[in-house]
């Protein structure tokens, strides 16, 4: 979990979402439906977006889980986090952790996505505040910064 190992004894029927929030106190992962319909609880498992509300920790034994708390690098915000803050992509902020992680999965796989590809990658993450526009702007900007950093 975020580069750390956590031995855990929890009821097997507690979802990853519940364990993150209630047992590991990582409340950055949000929830809006618990049925896989809103995307707010998205985390990354081995780099792939996964809904923590529909995943059991036991199914993820030995795999690498990244939550929003693990995204900062050496105490500095990830380019996606800074870009979201700068571009107005965060209004109420409740969908933000899930969207940032979905966007990370996209940019890690496809460093220069088109706007349509970004929209498709985020199509499972509902946001009611922004109309998604500044979110797409932020992902574009973060992508550009990450490409710069790499080159």
């Amino acid at each position: 979990m975020n580069g750390e190992q956590h031995p855990l004894a929890v009821p097997v029927y507690k979802t990853l979402l519940e364990v993150l929030r209630e047992d590991l106190h990582l409340t950055g992962t949000k929830h809006g439906c618990e049925l896989g319909e809103c995307g707010a609880c998205t985390v990354l498992v081995d780099g792939e977006p996964v809904l923590s509300c529909l995943a059991l920790p036991i199914e993820l034994e030995g795999r690498e889980i990244l939550t929003i708390e693990g995204l900062m690098e050496g105490g500095r915000p990830h380019p996606l986090q800074s870009a979201f803050a700068e571009m107005g992509a965060v209004q109420c902020g409740y969908c933000t952790p899930g969207i940032v992680l979905s966007a990370k999965a996209l940019l890690d796989r496809n460093p220069m996505p088109t706007r349509q590809e970004i929209a498709e990658a985020l199509s499972g993450n509902l946001c009611r505040c922004t109309g998604y526009i500044q979110i797409l702007d932020a992902v574009e900007r973060a992508g550009a910064r990450m490409r710069e950093r790499r080159s």
């Binding site: 995307g39 996964v50 499972g124």
Partner: peptide
């Protein structure tokens, strides 16, 4: 569905 569902 959507990308996270498709990765699961």
């Amino acid at each position: 569905a959507h990308p996270p569902i498709r990765s699961m």
